[in-house]
Design a protein around this nucleic acid. Structure first.
Lengths: 208, 208
DNA sequence: TGTTGCCTACCTACTAGTAGGAAGTTAAAT
DNA sequence: ATTTAACTTCCTACTAGTAGGTAGGCAACA
């Protein structure tokens, strides 16, 4: 069977893993060159400048993400399960170290010194993801699967921040399992019809 | 009045702002040199290697943070207000752009390619901050000012991740106000005696 | 007198990026 | 069918500039 992975795709693959590991300034053409056994100049043939390379990389990532999120919405009927599937995706990525950090979250931290063409794409990713989450949350709220304390757009921002913050903590502590420890309760809170998550509701034992 | 800011402190100051802006690989000795009007070699006199420079910088940051958090716990009696003060600190830092990102959060994203001496300090910062937050949350829960759905350590991780994620989103969207939009509801959720927001409350109905 | 702080001058390694050519592929013109 | 032209991919060899870091000297000061 022939491997139909073109050279330029291989370049993007390794560049992506390098960006995820160390950000925009954390890799060089020489790194890619060494990783896929091709000369530096040949990489410049495919991607003349570093800005173009990373731009193409984020572009591809955004397309993949867009397609993935779209298929979640279309392939799963329950919005609550759509959200769960999104979280599960990152849970396994971080767990098996295949994509232990979101490319755009990584680049967002370097926002201030990114080439404008890259920065605007990172912004667009955040915008798109926030929209997707807000849409899922709203649908779920309408279907009675979510209980939102704030506007869907705000809850979406909260979920997104939790996911990114959880990625960061997992990385900082070197503990992949921390991701789901942080994110799961946040999701559960949205799904729970009431705080205890049980059917009845005794709560308020008072005491202050 | 004489400015008692020593050269080495000035170096750390500018280095810190450069790290916050672009991470470990986002600045060079030449950048510092240009910023404070001193030769590159003179910086090497104070901090022989880049790893030592950043290590000293994180060390100073950790001391400042530790002192700040300690004084919050000692100077404010209500744990709920202690937490609020912590959040307000970042809110104003991000608002006036004085320290628009946590040094250690920035470095944590580059964890995988940091010199070990720096990486371990970043880990220590995360550990210490998580402990402080857990302690505040536990005190607040005992005093009836917080209602926790999970163990204090877990809630602390959630708060920390929210703060870091909110920083990232504020940066990604280029909107400083987004920080508090994300963090405030998370704090409010902890403070609320119950979901309806009425006056009754509390006591450990723990999710567990 | 020795230490501190800063300097000039320099080094090696690496950065992104360029010039130009060798090989192979494709497709039209002869 | 064969030559020709255009194009793609990759190469060697190179550039100017920057990276972190070093050697050694000079002046102020304790």
């Amino acid at each position: 069977m022939k491997s139909t992975t073109s050279t330029s795709e291989k370049i993007l693959d390794i560049a992506q893993s390098l960006v995820v590991a160390g950000g925009y300034n954390g890799f060089s053409y020489a790194d890619i060159s060494a990783a896929i056994g091709i000369r530096k100049a040949s990489i410049h043939h495919h991607f003349p400048t570093k800005a173009e390379l990373v731009s193409a990389l984020v572009d591809r990532y955004r397309q993949q993400t867009g397609a993935g999120l779209k298929s979640l919405r279309e392939g799963i009927s329950d919005p609550s399960e759509q959200l769960q599937a999104y979280v599960n995706f990152w849970h396994s990525c971080i767990g098996d170290a295949s994509l232990p950090f979101c490319v755009c979250a990584m680049l967002a931290s370097e926002m201030q010194m990114l080439p404008e063409e890259v920065a605007s794409q990172v912004r667009a990713h955040f915008h798109g993801l926030a929209e997707w989450l807000a849409s899922v949350l709203q649908s779920g709220a309408e279907a009675g699967r979510f209980r939102l304390d704030n506007r869907p757009e705000e809850e979406a921002q909260i979920v997104m921040a939790s996911v990114h913050g959880a990625m960061l903590s997992a990385r900082a502590f070197g503990d992949p399992g921390l991701f789901i420890v942080i994110v799961a309760p946040q999701i559960a809170r949205l799904q729970a019809p009431d705080r205890q998550g049980n059917a009845g509701q005794e709560s308020s034992t008072h005491g202050r």
